[in-house]
């Protein structure tokens, strides 16, 4: 029982992180029909930026926020400079481009920051909270992770639903041509979408790194889990991505806790294939005729 609770709580924490990552993928997919596989190394690079700043003596929270901002800038740069020429063209080219970027960022990070494992600090304890002599499975950093993701998601929700910019972003994603006719600067909205997505992706990278070891490949499996989570939710739906992320977090935590951590990626693969074959439109789709 104790182990089950530990596993579930751990899954919840990881689920929030996967949800954030899946959300980043969905934001980009919705607006540009590109799955940004380079999201993982982009998040990794921003985590290294935070680490360098912290090691340089900067306050943890300042470094955290600067890293998120650098993710924002990196996302905008990638959309404007790298991805723009292939938007709306063959999707194979777009995917290959993001993979090229994947390799480049990996190599750059190893060159600049080194490819060995380094420990990333956490602002809170990473040991379980003790209440009345019982040690709970949830750690202060875990609570921070959950809260941080929820706060960012609520802010995004506010942005998209309550502001003019958010409305313009949604209009650009759903119907770029009509949006342009109405005076929306669609190309700026796409850039902003990528930038925000990269910020959310960076958040997940920083949260995974907290109290853990980082190296240039530490986000590689997260892109897989985040992608599966996004597909679970239908790839088009931000809410679906969040639910998908939580499902993935808990499912993978159970696999890791009861079967072994080496099988986690295999489990993700099996979940992905099962969803794509049974409900290709995601768990919440009514119609399954959508071509995937």
């Amino acid at each position: 029982m104790q182990q089950l609770i530990t596993t579930l709580l751990n899954g919840l924490t990881m689920g929030m992180v996967y949800a954030a990552f899946a959300l980043a993928l969905v934001l980009i997919w919705r607006s540009t029909r590109i799955v940004n596989f380079a999201q993982a190394p982009m998040a990794m690079v921003t985590t290294y930026i935070a680490m360098v700043l912290i090691e340089g003596g900067l306050n943890y929270w300042l470094a955290f926020i600067l890293a998120l901002l650098s993710g924002f800038v990196l996302g905008a740069f990638v959309e404007r400079v790298i991805v723009r020429p292939v938007e709306g063209k063959s999707d194979i080219n777009a995917v290959i481009l993001t993979l090229g970027l994947f390799i480049v960022l990996h190599a750059l990070a190893a060159l600049v920051f080194g490819s060995d494992y380094k420990s990333f600090p956490a602002p809170f304890g990473v040991r379980g909270i003790t209440v009345g002599g019982h040690s709970l499975a949830i750690t202060p950093f875990g609570i921070f992770t959950i809260v941080a993701v929820i706060v960012v998601m609520l802010l995004l929700l506010l942005l998209f639903q309550k502001t003019d910019v958010g409305l313009q972003m949604r209009a650009s994603a759903f119907n770029p041509e009509v949006a342009r006719l109405l005076g929306v600067k669609v190309s700026s909205m796409l850039t902003l979408g990528w930038a925000l997505a990269a910020l959310v992706g960076s958040l997940s990278g920083l949260l995974i790194a907290g109290g853990n070891l980082v190296h240039p490949g530490y986000m590689d499996s997260v892109v897989v889990f985040g992608f599966v989570a996004a597909v679970l939710g239908g790839l088009d739906s931000p809410l679906g991505a969040v639910v998908g992320g939580l499902i993935m977090g808990i499912a993978l935590s159970l696999v890791s806790g009861y079967l072994g951590s080496g099988l986690v990626s295999l489990a993700a693969l099996l979940i992905l294939v099962a969803v794509l074959l049974v409900k290709p439109g995601g768990l919440f789709s009514h119609a399954s005729e959508r071509k995937v």
Binding site: R170, F174, V178, L181
Partner: peptide, 8 residues
């Protein structure tokens, strides 16, 4: 074809 954004 009207040009409403159906998702909004």
């Amino acid at each position: 074809g009207r040009g409403v954004i159906t998702e909004l």
